[in-house]
Simulated assay, not measured.
Amino acid sequence: MADWAGFRETAGRRVGGFGRVALGDADGVRRAAVVLCVAERDGELGVLVIKRANRGRNPGQWALPGGRAEDGETLQETGLRELREELGLEIAEADVLGMLDDFPAASGFAITPVVAVAQGAGEPVPDAREVRSVHHVPLRVLAADGAVNWVDRPDGGRLLQMRLGPGMTIHAPTGAMLWQFREVVLLGRDVRVADLIQPDWTRN
């Protein structure tokens, strides 16, 4: 059986002690939130990753459940609403462990990652209008050495790839948030992600 109590205690302490970087509401910056949702499958804890529907925003791309903030919402409320709308999962505010760094996406959104647990929330039921498929990535896979790959670019930069399974290579911004979750929450390290390179095809 999954060690929910142990994960909640460790993850809550690490996220709570992490001095996250929050971006200001500058002119032209749109706000969004995603959820790094930890769920159980076959007795193992993992993060839920989705593949977007073939039509709509970011068609066919790997993503975390989430979307644009609506007027009057906190970013935590945005994340939980989007999780409910996209995957049918109801999570209480008490199941939110905290937030990681805002990510300045090239699309013009400042994305806030919300770390939460879906203990007892049941199986996700994806909304086919927005989600093609749902994938449970075990925490042991995310924490493994082979999950992180850096690609040297001709311009001298390095491109992050999160390699989480066959055909599952994820770049920034989603890959950046998964990497920070891995480093901060799973491994207890302090890393920043705002300057990670985003492939051109993510800029929409």
Rank of each mutant, 00 (worst) to 15 (best):
A2M: 04
A2E: 11
W4P: 02
G6Y: 01
R8L: 11
R13C: 05
G16V: 04
R20E: 07
G24P: 06
A26P: 13
A26H: 14
R30H: 14
R31N: 08
A32K: 03
V35T: 15
A39P: 01
D42Q: 11
K51A: 13
N54S: 10
R57W: 14
P59D: 09
P65L: 15
G66D: 11
R68A: 11
E73V: 01
L75K: 02
Q76P: 03
T78P: 07
L80G: 02
R81Q: 14
E82V: 13
E86K: 13
A92H: 12
E93W: 03
E93F: 09
V96S: 09
G98S: 01
M99S: 10
L100T: 07
D102R: 03
F103E: 13
A105D: 10
A106P: 03
T112S: 15
T112Y: 05
P113S: 09
P113N: 07
P113T: 14
V117K: 02
A121I: 01
E123A: 10
E123H: 00
R132F: 05
S133N: 03
S133W: 00
H136M: 08
P138C: 01
L139M: 03
V141G: 08
A143V: 00
A144N: 00
G146N: 04
A147T: 02
A147H: 05
A147K: 03
W150K: 08
W150F: 11
D152S: 15
D152G: 12
D155I: 01
L159W: 11
L160T: 06
Q161M: 09
Q161P: 11
M162N: 08
L164G: 07
I170V: 06
H171D: 12
P173G: 02
G175W: 11
A176W: 08
L178W: 07
F181W: 09
F181L: 12
V184F: 00
L187W: 00
L187G: 00
D190Y: 01
A194V: 07
Q198S: 02
W201C: 07
W201K: 15
W201E: 08
W201N: 11
N204M: 09
